[in-house]
Design a protein around this nucleic acid. Structure first.
Lengths: 175, 175, 175, 175
DNA sequence: CATGAATGAGGCTTCATTCAT
DNA sequence: CATGAATGAAGCCTCATTCAT
């Protein structure tokens, strides 16, 4: 799994399964004892990464704080997780655009993120995009987060600056 | 070229050259009379689509109008072009993440967009992200535009609403 | 024809017909107005080169001189022709091993070289290989000539030395 | 490997890898589990055949015998090996002219033949070609051997006669 | 007779997946 | 459950040859 992250980050989603197996230090065919299919591996990886990001982002969430504080907590932990795991971020981004992720996986990932959805929903409801559908607001969140991550990774020295700037942009955009 | 757009939009960047040739109504090998390589075709396509989007976005630009008006003109025409050419939008998005686009092509595309860059630069300089590097602001623009396009395409009935909402989010985020 | 020599010498017998046409300054398809087939071109070239070599080798042959003198005349002119036309030598060598040369062409070439055959026959009859079939003696002649040519071309400064040494080796071997 | 010899002997160096795989009784792609490239297969084959010929030629070499005896031993065993393995002889000849053999392989093969080189060097030094470079003498050896092999193969009944005649020609030519 | 775009069969190579050990 | 050789379909690309202009 970790090997897959490294290989996909380095070679893209077209990386041979053989390369992943080699990186993992197992034999070519052993991969298929755990994942019946390359697509299954990708779906699993997708869910794992999403779950990990979610866990990190929600960890130590100050449940009683105000919306902005909670959202910043979420944003900050998410961004810093990605910035400190650039390979995971890159692998995830590559996997997302691949055609291999099934709608079921996407739905499952969405369901698992309910607490975040609920938070954003509250932000939306009280914000300037109150009239817009939640998925739209969510899309804005995800697109801004992607851009911010990439800059934090590309320019680690100013990572925290980018992180805050990204959040400000987000907050003004949706709150 | 148009055939490539359709096929890539439908099958992703991994689409066989044979599928593109067939869609274009020519023989498999004929493709390679025009593009020495699949990568060359993708680069060409990338530049073409970017150029087209740029042309549309800048057309009839009110040179004397204020920044917001000009930016909205740009945004509006860009979004509506994408919304009315969903296949081009999708193909472009798929191609962008592929590894086939050479740094030269990206540089060339960037150079061709100088007027837009200049406009955004003025917005940045006078806005809340004045302290952030221009590429960061640009990345925000592109990420928000992508999200907006996708929603306009997915929900054509409310396309104009999404377009305006996206712009409001952008303007608040960067201006 | 001359273009074919250059291209085959440079790229080997697998050279595309398109490359030959381009080198000749004519269009791709024009080639096939003169040669119905790539193989036909190769056969023609084979015969032409052999004929040219023959003509050069026999030119100014001292008909009344003794066998050794005549043979050296033949050898010397042949070697120097090859040494001064390295591309022709190389192209010819490449073509010879290709499967494209028809038995008819080989027979025709053999027939055209009757005077040389006659000369070598006389050498053989009076020499140490008198008991060996003529084709065997001829094969020795051709193999030694190939080796000599290559050294003359590779080391032009000592070309004449190699030429004479090659002849001495030949003469001792067959006379 | 043996399959490759058969196919190349029959179809020339342009033979499809598919034909070799089929002759070997394995699937098309299996070939590339052993040889990353067609060229690699050819290089391997080149080295193998050269090594085999060398081994056979040097086997039971009478180390104390005089030069002529040793050289004849070499020649005789070499010729008879080729004559009894006409496909190897042909495949090797075809491969040699192909562009696929890397300079490294040629160098490696040359290095492996040091004992033969040493022998020929002694012959050269004491012979009529004493003033000629060793490679030239070697080229004569190889060219005469090629001609002799072909006649032994083409006319098996008189193979031994050709073998001896070829040697006599060689010995007179270089000793 | 020149042209050069079009053709499509065929070649080399990759790789997800299987399976006997 | 591990292994890794074997598989063969599929992909990209080449090129001799054709043919409408």
């Amino acid at each position: 799994m970790a090997a897959a992250v490294r290989v996909i980050a380095a070679q893209g989603p077209g990386a041979p399964t053989a390369a992943i197996a080699k990186e993992a230090g197992v034999a070519n065919g052993s991969l298929f004892n755990y994942f019946a299919t390359k697509a299954e591996l990708y779906n699993q990886l997708y869910l794992d990464l999403k779950a990990e990001a979610f866990r990190v982002a929600m960890d130590e969430m100050p449940a009683e704080a105000d919306l902005r504080t909670q959202t910043f907590h979420l944003w900050s932990r998410w961004m810093n997780w990605a910035a400190s795991s650039p390979e995971k971020r890159k692998a995830f981004a590559q996997i997302c655009v691949a055609d291999d992720i099934s709608p079921e996986s996407r739905a499952q990932a969405g369901a698992a993120m309910a607490p975040i959805v609920a938070l954003i929903e509250r932000v939306r409801a009280g914000g300037v995009l109150a009239g817009q559908p939640l998925p739209f607001v969510f899309a804005i969140l995800e697109s801004l987060s992607g851009a911010t991550m990439d800059f934090m990774i590309a320019d680690p020295e100013h990572a925290q600056t980018h992180c805050k700037a990204g959040f400000e942009a987000l907050w003004r955009a949706i709150a």
